[in-house]
């Protein structure tokens, strides 16, 4: 399938009293139609900012975004609005992203109204159909979000995102606030929709078993920068970056026979404000050498479709 999204050297810096905060720093990738790019990393590493910048909900500081080969970085407000129909977002917190004074059917009809699509009867029909698709019983049409549980509220979020028949959806931690049994229901729904409608996703999460399950490729971020990217299953089979190794081995696994070698990461994240030109992982890396202090490592392809930013990737992995 063809390329849907291409991002080149994307940067988003925020001005703060302490200087420029590098939320997204030189990120590049391609997502093909029908695929899912999983984005993982610790709190504050820039996952949400990346998702929002790709959708142009936030203006990038630098870099380019292409949609089906067309440069959309500097398009007009009007073109941007048209593009919004094709590119949607589902948020983590279904509680705060829904207007508490609107009913379920009003909430799902909102995007259709905003784009003046369909007449009243047509909208009602479309809303009923969307509720079916996401598994919301019609009896909730006149309920308010606070009357529903988290799983149903997230279904409203999914229905809203689908209402304009998008091709691309950024899912920003869509299941993080949910119990595992409800989480699994929503993940199945998102996968069914992807298959039936050929949707393309960016799936942001900090839950590594979820991201492995749902992604085609996975991008690991650390303080705004890309540290590793490859096929989802490969990442778990053979992580090459020391940060990825530590991250993966820190996940508690629900299997008592599974004895894993743990790569311990000491310390906490360093500040993303005006980071030095050195490897950003240096303070926590068990393999750091002089070279790591000289400059930030380049993001290179070290095996087919396996990219890593680490000066010592070859020695660490006996390659």
């Amino acid at each position: 399938m063809g390329e849907l999204i291409r991002v080149e050297h994307l940067k988003k810096y925020f001005n703060t009293p302490g200087g420029k905060l590098h939320a997204v720093d030189d990120v590049s990738f391609v997502i093909n139609e029908g695929d899912t790019l999983g984005v993982v990393g610790e709190s504050g590493c820039g996952k949400s900012t990346l998702g929002r910048t790709v959708l142009k909900l936030i203006e990038p500081t630098d870099g380019k975004i292409f949609y089906k080969g067309r440069d959309i970085t500097d398009i007009t407000e009007k073109e941007n609005k048209q593009l919004r129909k094709k590119m949607q977002i589902i948020f983590q917190d279904p509680y705060s992203s829904l207007n508490p004074r609107k009913t379920v059917s009003e909430l799902i009809a909102d995007p259709l109204k905003a784009f003046h699509m369909l007449d009243k009867a047509g909208r009602a029909q479309k809303v009923a159909q969307l509720m079916d698709v996401v598994g919301l019983s019609q009896r909730f049409a006149n309920s308010y979000p606070h009357e529903l549980d988290g799983g149903r509220r997230q279904r409203i979020g999914v229905a809203r995102a689908l209402s304009l028949d998008p091709e691309f959806i950024v899912c920003d931690e869509p299941v993080s606030a949910l119990d595992v049994s409800i989480q699994a229901q929503i993940l199945n729904l998102l996968q069914d929709l992807q298959r039936d409608r050929g949707l393309t996703y960016i799936f942001v999460t900090h839950d590594l078993s979820v991201v492995r399950h749902i992604s085609t490729d996975i991008l690991v971020m650390y303080i705004g920068a890309m540290v590793e990217k490859c096929g989802a299953k490969d990442l778990f089979k053979a992580p090459l970056h020391p940060y990825t190794k530590g991250l993966l081995s820190a996940i508690p696994v629900p299997n008592i026979d599974h004895v894993r070698e743990k790569v311990k990461l000491q310390g906490e994240l360093t500040s993303p404000i005006e980071p030095k030109d050195e490897c950003r992982f240096i303070a926590r890396c068990p393999y750091a050498t002089e070279a790591c202090k000289q400059h930030m490592p380049e993001f290179q392809e070290v095996a087919p479709n396996h990219f890593v930013a680490c000066h010592n990737v070859k020695t660490i992995n006996n390659m």
């Binding site: 409800i182 699994a184 078993s209 778990f236």
Partner: peptide, 21 residues
């Protein structure tokens, strides 16, 4: 509960959640 958690080493197409609430 066990069927709802995506596995970290097995490949499965779909999860097997408990329906309902």
């Amino acid at each position: 509960l066990f069927g709802s958690i995506p596995s970290l080493d097995k490949d499965e197409e779909r999860l097997h959640p408990i329906e309902g609430l």
